[in-house]
Design a protein around this nucleic acid. Structure first.
Lengths: 68, 68
DNA sequence: AAAATTTATACCCGATATGGTATAATTGAT
DNA sequence: ATCAATTATACCATATCGGGTATAAATTTT
């Protein structure tokens, strides 16, 4: 499950950004941010990282079903 | 940095599997396992998960530069 | 309430990841 | 040191991701 979806959707709103603004800041396409928040599971690792880095986070190994 | 590389390479050897066996068990191609352990950064999230699940782990959000 | 903004869904296209295979290099065993 | 097994690198094919755009739906603002 894309915990990324929940995490980012919340974080983005917390700092008051639109998907479009976030996409621009992260250097990814708007479509990607949408797919990401929609929970698409086949995203590319590096692109996800580009977004997470905006929040001081990144993709890593966690225990199964764990919630970061 | 693909912490995945280090994590999986070590874990795989710990259980005494070859890349080929791991690939088969995970249901991914041998080439993918190789790319993964080689630290390729543009891998697909779902494929990485297929491998991590074999070890009770998965991809998740972690603090930047953190080591799981 | 309507209007405006934001988000979701659908389509096309180009770039590339994945899988397969082959070969080279490396590692391990005898 | 030789031979076997494992791993690394390279090439080709197919599938699909990411970006862009357009439209619909949903949310927010007034």
């Amino acid at each position: 499950m894309s915990t990324f979806s929940a995490f980012l959707k919340e974080r983005r709103k917390a700092v008051g950004l639109t998907q479009e603004e976030l996409a621009f800041k992260a250097g990814v396409g708007l479509r990607f941010v949408r797919d990401l928040e929609q929970g698409k599971k086949t995203l590319r690792l590096d692109k996800v990282n580009q977004v997470l880095w905006l929040f001081g986070k990144e993709v890593g190994v966690v225990d199964e079903k764990a919630d970061a």
